[in-house]
Design a protein around this nucleic acid. Structure first.
Length: 814
DNA sequence: ACGCAGCCCTAA
DNA sequence: TTAGTTAGGGCTGCGT
């Protein structure tokens, strides 16, 4: 096992078995592949050269190949720019003339980083969007009191500021009366007045909220503890929701609506000079850009650049490398354009001379600091959109940053796209029930997405071992080059040939993550997940599950003037989960059919209109004079209004997700282009996962908006469905009804049952299984004691028929 | 030897 | 400042 990876990767060291297979593998095969890539490049280049005028002989040591294609002239008055945004963040800056929003004091400015279809990097500064939140208006509050309220709140918030180095002029910019409704609980479809409070900076929301909750006194009104609404929404999410921007979507800046930043025209005015290393940088008002939904033409994917790299250090024997002691001796890099088969940049930076490697550029340095300095400028020149590697987040990037700072390499840490922003390492502890305690390092790199393959595998795949070698073998049937970590230092201290061996090893470690990324379709899948759920790509990598549902909920809520409360709802007790039918142990030498519900929990939520907005209590039932046909009582004893009274948001979200999934699957069938197929498959997967996570969100007791009434109703309905499926199967498929055998449900869990129909052959069981699934799908009893026709498909399907063994035999051995 | 509680892991 | 759920099996350690 590679020593430097040990920290992040858990699991056992490579077994004897993998050593054997390694020996089977021809050690030179990777070199042959590299060489082949070189030949392929040469062919392409010849084609290119014969068409275009040659720019002179390619010099292997120049960096001309590294840069992005040059940008032609852009006329902002005539040219509309389109780009796929990859990341969204914001900064606090100064007002720009002509833009909406506050004109004095610091203002928040949104940044969108993206790539055009021509592969040019772009940064858009989006001006004028302001943060806000809501509180319910006090009884009798009139619109004309808004001014007084605003001034009074502004005064207390300003007074609360400890320091005001940014020179905040006004904290509360505006207060206006709006008519809204809380998302939580059904209250007669009546909208009530709320105050929309607009503040000048996102970070002022928290103190404003605190002061309002603590009992703010508006002149003319009594003291009042305000509950706040939507005061805990990330500014980026707020912006994206309001502007209908989803993650990784396409954005257009129409001709005449934006201003370009360049070095020449506006020198001396620091407002207009570029802030980033992007090729195109522009300013636009938040009201002027066009956000495309990722459909049709706009579901395309821009030609991203993905940089994969791997470093080697000369560690001391048996000691984990330390950045202040052990030098970085090699860095291998692979840069691929999204969609291409092979990386178009392949190089390795080596300390001391290294013999050439066909198919790869070799850059040798006598001094380690030179190596690092050159790598840093290489990174800026390549300008990758996505940086990947294996355990780069917790090892490679922190190591080179620490090493460069130890060696005092100037300007090394400028790895992001913002010119004057250096990348720093922060420690973070991320804790969730799903992922457990996880200590991670976080490195800021504005405008570039760090897609650490190890992190993705830990997140999405359950594997026995997470070493790069094991993972590569598992997914690619391919392995690392055979170099024991213990001899790395010896190879470095040898000669150009031994360092060459190390270089080949390092190159392989750089290309494997790219191959895994491609094989597992990570980029496309994550991109589609960002589009479906509406959050930036980086959120999917750094945040939990909840933010995805919040984003979708906010979008739907906005359509109906609904507001999400920010206050933590008091969490009740635990609730009852899924049912498990006690297995009937035994040896079955006849076929067992497995029937399972597809998307059971989402279907239940849709079928019974379970949502925050439809949740009832006895008080409301009486107050609104609801008749029993207008609401339901769930098996867990909770009440919800039917969709005829008020259609729930969650059911709407789920319908959208599942119908979009059906469409994606349909399109997938008809699509012939393999790349578009991948995109569609990624989408349908993202849609399925998203639909299933909605239930979890309502049950998250430490969450943004838990609702145990919903989650316990869902599981209660689920238990009922399983029970009834069992009963239906057993009541229908028996000798009394003319079947050859008595069917028996031998096991069931959450959304599936296993049936023994008693037939000898698989075919017969298949037949009966299919029939039973269809029968029950159309005839399920869904409410206690009442036959209910369900509009939502409760899709019970025959999953498999096989010989199943339920026995304790294996525990005792055979 | 056995029952029980607590922890960790997996399935759904 | 940030986190999807519950059920259930296997294992360990403790007390009787």
């Amino acid at each position: 096992m590679d020593q430097k990876k040990r920290k992040g990767a858990s699991g056992t060291p490579s077994s004897k078995r993998s050593r054997l297979t390694e020996d089977d593998d021809d050690p030179s095969s990777f070199e042959a592949e590299l060489a082949l890539m070189n030949e392929f490049d040469a062919e392409m280049k010849m084609e290119f050269d014969s068409q275009e005028m040659d720019a002179g002989p390619e010099n292997e040591t120049t960096s001309s190949k590294w840069s992005r294609p040059p940008v032609g002239p852009i006329d902002p008055s005539k040219d509309t720019l389109a780009f796929q945004q990859l990341d969204v963040d914001f900064y606090v800056g100064k007002h720009l003339a002509g833009m909406p929003g506050a004109t004095v004091g610091p203002v928040p400015i949104i940044r969108m980083y993206g790539i055009t279809m021509d592969g040019h990097s772009l940064l858009a500064h989006i001006h004028g969007f302001t943060p806000y939140f809501f509180v319910p208006a006090q009884p009798g509050f009139k619109a004309e009191h808004c001014g007084v309220f605003k001034d009074a709140l502004n005064a207390v918030v300003m007074k609360d500021l400890r320091s005001n180095r940014e020179g905040i002029n006004t904290a509360v910019l505006a207060v206006s009366m709006v008519v809204k409704e809380s998302i939580y609980g059904y209250h007669g479809n009546r909208k009530i007045p709320f105050l929309k409070i607009t503040v000048s900076l996102p970070r002022l929301i928290a103190p404003s909220k605190r002061l309002l909750e603590g009992g703010f006194i508006c002149p003319g009104y009594s003291q009042y503890g305000f509950l706040t609404y939507e005061s805990n929404i990330d500014f980026e999410i707020r912006f994206m929701v309001d502007c209908e921007v989803v993650g990784c979507s396409w954005i257009e800046t129409p001709a005449g609506k934006y201003k370009l930043r360049d070095n020449i025209s506006k020198q001396g005015n620091d407002h207009f000079s570029p802030q980033s290393r992007c090729q195109i940088e522009l300013d636009i008002s938040w009201e002027d850009f066009v956000a495309h939904q990722p459909e049709g033409e706009w579901s395309k994917v821009a030609p991203f650049r993905i940089l994969s790299f791997d470093i080697e250090c000369a560690g001391r024997k048996g000691i984990f490398p330390e950045a202040d002691k052990d030098p970085v001796i090699q860095i291998a890099n692979m840069v691929i354009q999204q969609g291409d088969r092979d990386p178009f940049i392949r190089n390795v930076f080596t300390l001391k001379e290294c013999a050439s490697v066909i198919g790869s550029q070799v850059l040798s340095f006598e001094k380690e600091s030179e190596l690092l300095k050159k790598w840093s400028s290489f990174c800026r020149e390549v300008d990758p959109d996505i940086i990947t590697g294996y355990n780069i987040q917790n090892f490679d990037i922190p190591y080179i940053l620490n090493r460069a700072s130890h060696l005092k390499v100037n300007n090394f840490a400028f790895l992001g796209r913002i010119r004057d922003k250096i990348s720093v390492i922060k420690d973070s502890v991320f804790q969730s029930k799903q992922m457990g305690k996880r200590e991670n390092k976080v490195i800021n790199m504005e405008g570039r997405v760090q897609l650490d393959l190890l992190q993705i595998l830990l997140r999405d795949y359950k594997l026995r071992s997470y070493t790069l070698n094991a993972v590569s073998f598992h997914f690619l049937q391919e392995q690392k080059e055979d170099v024991q970590h213990s001899i790395i230092t010896d190879l470095q201290n040898g000669n150009p040939q031994t360092r060459r061996r190390l270089a080949v090893y390092c190159l392989k470690d750089a290309i494997l993550p790219l191959r895994l990324l491609d094989k597992l379709m990570c980029v496309i899948n994550y991109m589609e997940m960002a589009r479906v759920t509406g959050v930036p790509l980086t959120y999917l990598l750094s945040r939990g599950q909840q933010i995805k549902v919040v984003s979708q909920l906010l979008r739907k809520a906005k359509e109906q003037d609904l507001l999400m409360p920010s206050q933590k709802i008091e969490t009740g007790d635990e609730y009852e989960g899924a049912t498990v039918i006690e297995p009937e142990k035994g040896y079955y030498n006849i076929p067992i059919a497995t029937l399972d519900f597809s998307s059971l929990y989402p279907s239940i939520m849709m079928a019974h209109n379970l949502c925050y907005t439809s949740l009832l209590n006895q008080h409301t039932i009486q107050k609104e004079n609801l008749t029993p046909d207008q609401y339901i009582k769930t098996p867990s004893g909770n009440y919800f209004v039917k969709s005829s009274i008020r259609k729930g948001l969650l059911p709407e979200i789920l319908e959208h997700l599942l119908s979009a999934r059906k469409k994606a699957k349909f399109d997938l069938k008809n699509e012939t282009d393999p790349f578009k197929k991948k995109v569609l498959d990624g989408r349908q997967l993202a849609l399925k996962i998203s639909a299933n996570s909605v239930y979890g969100f309502t049950g998250a007791q430490v969450g943004k908006l838990p609702c145990l009434e919903i989650s316990q109703s869902v599981t209660a309905f689920g238990r009922m469905m399983i029970e009834q499926t069992k009963n239906h199967v057993e009541e229908r498929y028996n000798i009394a009804n003319g079947y050859k055998h008595n069917a028996k449900v031998i096991y069931g869990d959450t959304d599936s049952v296993m049936c023994r129909f008693g037939t000898e052959t698989v075919e017969e069981s298949m037949e009966l299984g299919k029939e039973a699934a269809e029968f029950i799908s159309t005839n399920i009893i869904a409410t206690p004691g009442r036959l209910m026709h369900i509009l939502v498909e409760m899709n019970l399907k025959l999953k498999s028929v096989e010989y199943a063994v339920f026995d304790e035999a294996d525990r005792y051995g055979s």
